[in-house]
Each structure stands twice: as structure tokens, then as C-alpha cells.
């Protein structure tokens, strides 16, 4: 079964069950997304993918809204651009997005000026949490997209070591009572790192290399191979710089892993360094 809808006046056909975002991608439109992940349930929290849908009072999040027959979707209206611009400004004015892939281009595209909220605006700035040798948490870079919570939770790992705690602007990602990770339920699968869109969660290797100025993506190769630690056959993407592994991800669309790994696959490569 397919559905036909119109996107910016152009008819697009998608499979039944597809989202508006799927249709936008099919139409070749670059849509900013942050909280969306193809391997996660949409939480539609970041609101940067908003589009206008005829008949809808408010804008609609493309990532989670199912496409409907004859839906009329607009992506380039003043309303949509305004909304995307403001959301990007809200984020860039409160969060350190310096290492978030893609965001710089969107800020330009939508003419965002985060500085217009004043120099004394509130931010989520705070010290980096370095509690072990595997990964760091820099919540000054956290946009509260819930992806780490989902990956730690029902969408993948089902460990539920972290949750959003508190409320409003003060809300944070937290373990129970904010105990340090090694004391929490965290099993160090690193699936939170794999889905983090802003670099708030980062391999300790990458963090250290960035700190001492040696992180250089231009010198990195990415090689897909298979993990050696059990018989499940998880696909690994080895990021290698100067013949050393610097981080490990898994392809999001791989049907063995759905992009998720365990501690051994994610971090268990020191023995060949």
C-alpha cells in the first residue's frame, strides 16, 4: 500500500506507515533533525523538523507524524522557517553546539542569531563529568533530546540507567540521585554515545584527543567489520586515526545491531592498540 501526499506542491508517494520525514527525505529535502534517530522511537522533543500541514492549527513534527493520503505539507513557509530558526536559536543560545554535526550549516541556513538573547542569558553550562576511562558526559552540550534515555531504555539496551530528572530548563539527564556512573546501573554499552547528536556523550579517547588537539577527522578512516566477542555477529564501524582505534560505532541500519553494541564491542579493543 502506498500513500500520496503533496510536499511543497510536489506529489510524493510513500509506503503506508511512513512518516512525513520519510516523505521529505524521499523528496530530497534536507530537513534538520536532532532528536530523531532511525533506530529510535520518535520523541519529537527538539521541534526542529517542524513543517506546516494544511488543516493543522500548529506546526507538525515531521519525524513522528505519519504520512496521510492527500496530506498537504509545506516546508519552506515563513512560519516553518521562523519556527526552525527560533528553535535553533534557543538551542545555540543555551547549549554548546560546537561539535554537533550539521548544526552549523542549519544555523546559517535559517539565519539564526543566538546572541540576540543577550549576553547574560541562561545556559546549561556546567563542568564535564569524567568518571571512568570509557566515556565522558559533557552536559553543557546536552540539548535534552532524550535519545540517550531511549537507547539506554526501551529502544535498545533496556537498562534504564539514566532518565530525565528535574523539570523545565533545570531538567537534566541523570542517574538515580545523580550517583556517579560506575555506581549506577550503567553497563557501559555506549549506546547513548552512539545516538548523541551533539557530542555531549563522547568516547574518552575522543575527548582526550580533542583536549590535546590531536583529534583530526580528516585523518580518520572508517572500516566496517564484525565484533569478535560472541556469536551474535555485530557490525562494528572502527574509526581509526594513525593506526589506532579512536571510537567504535555500529551502522544504524544494520539488522543485527540496529546501531547498538555492548561494552565489549564498543570498548573492548584496547588489546589490539
Amino acid at each position: 500500500m502506498t500513500i500520496e501526499l503533496r510536499i511543497d506542491g510536489v506529489p510524493i508517494e510513500v509506503e503506508d506507515g511512513a512518516t512525513v520525514l520519510d516523505a521529505l527525505q524521499l523528496a530530497g529535502l534536507d530537513t534538520p533533525t536532532l532528536c530523531y534517530g532511525p533506530n529510535l522511537t520518535p520523541v519529537n522533543a527538539c521541534r526542529v523538523c517542524m513543517v506546516e500541514v494544511e488543516g493543522s492549527r500548529t506546526l507538525v513534527p515531521a519525524c513522528s507524524r505519519p504520512a496521510e493520503p492527500d496530506m498537504v505539507v509545506s516546508t519552506n513557509t515563513d512560519r516553518v522557517r521562523h519556527s526552525r530558526r527560533l528553535v535553533l536559536e534557543f538551542l545555540a543560545s543555551s547549549v554548546d553546539l560546537s561539535v554537533a554535526p550539521g548544526v552549523g550549516a542549519w544555523l546559517d541556513e535559517y539565519g539564526a542569531e543566538p546572541s540576540r538573547f543577550g549576553a547574560d542569558r541562561a545556559t546549561v553550562g556546567q563542568p564535564v563529568k569524567v568518571q571512568d576511562d570509557l566515556y565522558i558526559r559533557d552536559y553543557a552540550k546536552c540539548i535534552l533530546c532524550y535519545k540517550c534515555v531511549e537507547a539506554c531504555g526501551v529502544d535498545a539496551q533496556n537498562t534504564f540507567a539514566i532518565s530525565v530528572a528535574g523539570r523545565g530548563f533545570e531538567a537534566t539527564i541523570s542517574t538515580e540521585f545523580d550517583v556517579a556512573l560506575p555506581d549506577s546501573a550503567c553497563v557501559y554499552c555506549g549506546n547513548c554515545i552512539g545516538v548523541c547528536p551533539t557530542g555531549a556523550l563522547m568516547f574518552k579517547t575522543e575527548f582526550d584527543m580533542r583536549e590535546n588537539g590531536t583529534w583530526d577527522e580528516d585523518r580518520q578512516t572508517v572500516t566496517e567489520t564484525i565484533c569478535s566477542f560472541c556469536g551474535v555477529g555485530c557490525s562494528l564501524e572502527l574509526f581509526v586515526q594513525d593506526n589506532r582505534i579512536v571510537k567504535v560505532l555500529s551502522p544504524l541500519d544494520h539488522d543485527v545491531t540496529d546501531g547498538h553494541l555492548c561494552i565489549k564491542g564498543r570498548f573492548g579493543w584496547e588489546h589490539i592498540q
Binding site: 520523541v43 519529537n44 522533543a45 527538539c46 521541534r47 526542529v48 519556527s83 527560533l86 528553535v87 534557543f90 538551542l91 543560545s93 543555551s94 538573547f117 543577550g118 547574560d120 542569558r121 541562561a122 540539548i143 535534552l144 530525565v164 528535574g166 523539570r167 523545565g168 530548563f169 533545570e170 531538567a171
Partner: peptide, 25 residues
């Protein structure tokens, strides 16, 4: 609204704070 926003979505979580700041100024 700053105290009562749940904080889930960006426009509201940050918007009410930026609104409060602008109103304060």
C-alpha cells in the same frame, strides 16, 4: 511558566526562559 514547563520540547523549555529574560530587561 518557567517553573511549570515540563522541559520536554525545546521551544517551550528554552522559550519561556528567553521570554522571562526579555520581560525582565
Amino acid at each position: 511558566f518557567e517553573e511549570e514547563t515540563c522541559g520536554q520540547c525545546v521551544p517551550c523549555r528554552v522559550g519561556v526562559v528567553r521570554q522571562g529574560e526579555a520581560l525582565g530587561r
